[in-house]
Amino acid sequence: MTVCLWLICVLLLVIIILLFNQTINSFQDNYTDLTQKKLELETRVKDLTAEKDQLKNSFSSLSQKKLELETRVSDLTVDKSQLQRSAHTLNQKKLELETRVKDLTAEKDQLKNSFSSLSQKKLQLETRVKDLTVEKSQLQRSADSLSQKKMQLETRVIDLTAEKIQLQRSVSSLRQKNLQLESKVTSLSDELLRNLCGPGNLFFISDEEKSWSESRKYCRDHGADLVIINTEEKQRFISSIINERVWIGLSDIETEGRMKWVDNSPLNRGFWFRGQPNNSGNEDCVELIPRDQLN
């Protein structure tokens, strides 16, 4: 398109120049004709002057010729005015052509700038196409990698699903075993409770606050005594049913530092934390503390 525009502009410029040259040549031919006619008129005037001198007697004929000459001069004057108007028109056309040439030159410069801008945009587009091609290749590789990872994940999901099914089966089996174990533990707990709470092993926990001596007196008044803990099972059972601190039948009231049960049997083994009882603050009597109240 740019080359075609350039060719059209050149052809228009050549045509305008040819037309301008043709007009100038025509003007020059007319000017030559006028000059030649002027010379002829001058010669004619000389001839008429000579004829006037020779034909003084022929005044009427000369007057007639004078009228003809005047008419001819008028015609020449009219032709001169027409030539002047033609020259003025040609000057206007010349100015228009010069303006047109300037406009065409400006359009030519604009077309050059547009061509340069288009060339630059073309280079940018080519660079962009190369970049997009590289990005396409990278995206294709990424898509291939993602497809491979997707297949791996699908395989992993299948494996995990199978493992999940196996785990669910294992969980169901474990739940069933847990129920069986809970049933056995409940049965054992009931049996232990029957053993602990059999004849001679009944427990009473009072909600009244009393000292160790007052508590023992209260128990003895009711035909019992503070509890003696001589087995680990008994210790666990009592610890499981108390919510507050309770006295037990162990003290060193009679002999400091020598712990004895209320049936006068010595303390051979205690089922509590190591180092207890520790006689902190000159303690004489022992109490059990629920696990949730321990520091």
Score class of each variant (00 low, 15 high):
Leu294Tyr: 06
Ser86Arg: 07
Asp33Glu: 10
Ile228Gln: 04
Asp292Asn: 15
Trp272Met: 05
Lys65Leu: 10
Phe203Leu: 15
Met1Val: 07
Gln276Phe: 05
Leu250Phe: 00
Gln84Cys: 08
Ser137Asp: 10
Ser114Asn: 12
Asn230Ala: 11
Asp131Trp: 06
Cys219Gly: 03
Val134Asp: 11
Ser26Met: 07
Asn195Thr: 05
Arg274Lys: 09
Asn230Ile: 12
Gln276Ser: 07
Met259Cys: 02
Val286Met: 00
Gly223Gln: 00
Ile205Pro: 06
Leu39Glu: 08
Glu68Leu: 12
Pro199Asp: 15
Val3Trp: 13
Glu96Cys: 08
Arg156Trp: 08
Gly257Arg: 03
Arg128Phe: 05
Ser60Pro: 09
Phe203Ser: 02
Ser170Asn: 11
Gln110Ser: 09
Leu76Tyr: 13
Ser215Gly: 05
Val157Gln: 07
Ser60Gln: 11
Leu76Asn: 09
Leu174Ala: 03
Lys93Glu: 14
Lys93Pro: 02
Asp252Ser: 04
Arg156Cys: 02
Leu67Met: 01
Asp225Asn: 11
Lys66Trp: 05
Thr133Lys: 09
Thr186Phe: 00
Gln148Ile: 05
Phe59Cys: 08
Asn264Cys: 01
Arg100Ser: 14
Gln176Pro: 02
Leu11Phe: 10
Thr255Phe: 01
Glu126Tyr: 06
Tyr218Glu: 14
Leu193Ser: 12
Phe20Ser: 15
Ile228Thr: 02
Gln168Pro: 02
Glu51Ile: 10
Lys102Pro: 03
Pro199Ser: 15
Gln180Ile: 03
Gly275Leu: 05
Leu67Thr: 05
Glu254Asp: 06
Cys197Met: 13
Ile8His: 15
